[in-house]
Amino acid sequence: MNKIPFIPSSRHFKKNLQLSLLALPAFLIIFVFSYLPMGGIFIAFKNINYSDGILRSPWVGLENIKFFFTSNDAWMVIRNTLLYNIVFIAVGTFLSVVFAIMLNEVIRRSWLKAYQTIFFFPYFFSWIIVAYMAYSFIGPYGILTTWIEKLGFESFDFYSETWVWPILLTLINIWKGLGYVSIIFYAGILGISQEYFEAAEIDGASRLQVIRNITVPLLMPLITIMTLLSIGKIFYSDFGLFFFVPREVGQLFPVTQVIDTYVYRMLKVSGDIGMSSAVGLFQSVMGFIVVLFSNYVVKRIDDDNKLF
């Protein structure tokens, strides 16, 4: 580890001290806003009653989480969360890699720059603005709604048809993130040493062969890292997407409710913090287990690609 053996240890001490100092502000912020709240996890095991206060409220063990699992909605929201995330990860990663490879094939710099800029547009809008945009297409006066009627079809009410939402939400999510993620992969491709490509060219490989045998394999570590990180969040969802875009229409809950929005709404209607904390904890723990597991699997397959 020690790469500079000729520096005396007092220097090392000073160096480490100064480096620690540089890290300190962020260290403290993370401590306060990420680690301190973990101290409140015990709330998940209590039946909170305000006359006793949070600390003196009775312990109820796993009662809160049991309450969640006996509700109508537990399986529905878990299913929604997982299915959406699996689709998002699979389709999103695939398309992003394809886009990155295609970007790498674009020869004219001006085109490349234009595409990169435009692809980033959706990433710039907050979910609220995306919700407004979606509304301008599928709302009661929306462009799509109007067209459907003009073309002579029966009028279609997007906000009360459950079956379109899985498709819509997937499209919107991928639309929003594609530019961003594909440029991360594109940067990854640029990081691949040119020697490989030159060697391939000398060997007379076709573009597709180059992509299949050089670009993709060398991009694999990055793809794995990005996927592992997404898998770590598989029990979480983008709150904004599921909360704002379907505009909180109750009828759509069966296909738009995910764990995050569910916890938020439960808190909103019942104010039961014990239960919402329990669900939050469940989310964290499950996510953690999933990451450890998939990291283990990756490690078994290819030790180089593991996250830690």
């Binding site: 020690n2 680690y35 709240p37 996890i41 904390s277 989310q283």
Partner: peptide, 25 residues
């Protein structure tokens, strides 16, 4: 060559995977 590099990385990236949740925060 930073002495606490590994510990500090874990400290930072652990929070990507685990959090205290809405209510405690």
């Amino acid at each position: 060559d930073y002495k606490y590099k590994n510990k500090l990385s874990f400290y930072v990236f652990f929070t990507m995977l685990f959090n205290g949740g809405l209510v405690p925060t």
